[in-house]
């Protein structure tokens, strides 16, 4: 079987497997695994966002926790105001409707990503890594220092936000929402990658000078990709806040940024289902080893080191073979 077909079937297994796990879990009455699958879906969604910047565009953003946390805080703050009835800034009222919260989270993440991207993309290489990290740290310390919404202690969402026609307090419904968002994001990723935009973006990753020489401005394309990337990660943050019914500055910490990169790499960077495979491995690792030892991150570190040094295509790369380009 050639490698493209292998990867196709592997993707199908991942897509169906992620759906089947909570179904089976419900049948054998193990709701814990439903929540766990939701976690996988949301982390995968966050990493699909990062994969656009990192995998397609080659932009090593070490600050995507910024958008993850921003989305989370949008969900938390809007729910907080909807609960208390006190208006937010400029007299806007809060909301406990996911269909209101998600667009706000995405727009705000996109706006911040546009600002961060416009400034950061003036640099490249290690400077880009560092400046994206710096912006995320700025937000992290602001969230810690800003006492109105809990500061370091974070902010609880007492009642999970609403989605029309679904009882979001039921774990299965929450899973469906996350899974649905993930599938839409994967379709979007595939469309972007196959579009002229994606071709230009990947060409810029490989050789920006040549792309500029044929008359395409690398800056605009990269910035657009960075903004889309931030918006998707922002959406995932809003969902994660609702899943946990809690948001805290740690969502914005550099550890979270690192984890998102790790998920992309473990799965296979730039591949359509890399984030899904990576999120499944990451969350699975957390559960299996976290149950055995509190030092599970030690083993995660060893595995990660092994993957970076010896298996650069990630999980999908090991099974389906290396990509031929890039």
């Amino acid at each position: 079987m050639d490698e493209t077909r292998k990867e196709f079937w592997l993707n199908a297994v991942l897509l169906i497997g992620l759906f089947a796990t909570p179904v089976i879990a419900l049948m054998i009455d193990e709701p814990f695994y439903v929540t766990l699958s939701t976690r996988v879906a949301i982390f995968a969604l966050a990493a699909v966002g990062l994969n656009i910047a990192l995998g397609l565009g080659g932009m090593v953003s070490f600050g995507h926790a910024l958008y993850f946390g921003l989305g989370g805080y949008v969900a938390g703050i809007m729910a907080h105001h909807a609960f208390s009835g006190v208006p937010m800034v400029f007299g806007l009222s809060g909301s406990d409707q996911m269909l209101v919260i998600w667009p706000v989270a995405m727009l705000l993440s996109g706006l911040i990503a546009a600002i961060v991207g416009a400034l950061s993309l003036r640099t490249s290489g290690i400077f880009f890594i560092m400046i994206t990290l710096a912006f995320a740290q700025m937000a992290y310390y602001f969230a810690i220092g800003w006492p109105t919404y809990g500061g370091e202690d974070g902010l609880s969402i007492f009642v999970r936000n609403q989605f029309p026609g679904l009882n979001t307090m039921q774990t299965w419904n929450m899973f469906l929402l996350a899974y649905g968002a993930l599938v839409i994001a994967l379709v979007l990723f595939a469309m972007l990658r196959n579009a002229r935009f994606g071709a230009a973006l990947m060409a810029i990753r490989q050789n920006p000078e040549r792309v500029a020489a044929v008359g395409i401005s690398p800056f605009g394309i990269k910035l657009a990709a960075f903004v889309i990337s931030g918006m998707i990660t922002g959406l995932s943050g809003a969902m994660m806040a609702d899943l946990n019914r809690f948001v805290s500055p740690s969502m914005m910490s550099w550890h979270t940024s690192g984890q998102l990169i790790v998920i992309c790499i473990l799965g296979g960077v730039g591949r359509l289902f890399g984030p899904v495979a990576g999120a499944a491995v990451f969350v699975g690792f957390e559960v299996v080893f976290g149950g055995l030892t509190q030092h599970w991150q030690f083993w995660l570190g060893l595995v990660l080191l092994g993957v970076v040094l010896f298996a650069r295509g990630g999980v999908i790369g090991i099974i389906a073979g290396r990509e031929r380009h890039g």
């Binding site: 290489g125 030690f298 570190g301 060893l302 990660l304 970076v308 040094l309």
Partner: peptide
């Protein structure tokens, strides 16, 4: 030593892995 010829992404990841190993190792 194995990372000098690699790109920055690999260096970031491998040394991030080292942080996990060294931090957890110290706490053990």
């Amino acid at each position: 030593r194995r990372l000098y010829a690699r790109d920055h992404l690999d260096q970031v990841l491998a040394t991030f892995a080292l942080i996990l190993i060294l931090s957890e190792g110290t706490s053990m």
